[in-house]
Amino acid sequence: MLRIRCPYCEEARSEEEFAYAGEAHIRRPEDPEALSDREWGEYLHFRTNARGPHREMWVHAAGCRRYFNVLRDTVSYEILDVYPIGKAPSDDSTGNGA
């Protein structure tokens, strides 16, 4: 059971209050119609599935309902960073930085 610090409620809350919302920093293509089927398929279906530090989105579903980014180690489950949507990652050591 994770404890996640909500950057908006400004305190650590229990995992039950949150929902996972997929990999972070995946921008929707500006002009989908300009993409090939393969490129659109990459956006739809392909994810980094990192072993180790991984940037992902969570939503504070039972709390303030805000989405935010989490840098979490998928091996140790340690949460290394929490930061708002729209903020660039503090470093790009992971495979899925901006």
């Binding site: 409620c9 809350r13 229990s14 039950e16 209050e17 039972a62 709390g63 303030c64």
Partner: peptide, 9 residues
């Protein structure tokens, strides 16, 4: 605080 309350919130 808004939180989980039993199986509601």
């Amino acid at each position: 605080v808004q939180t989980v309350f039993a199986k509601a919130s």
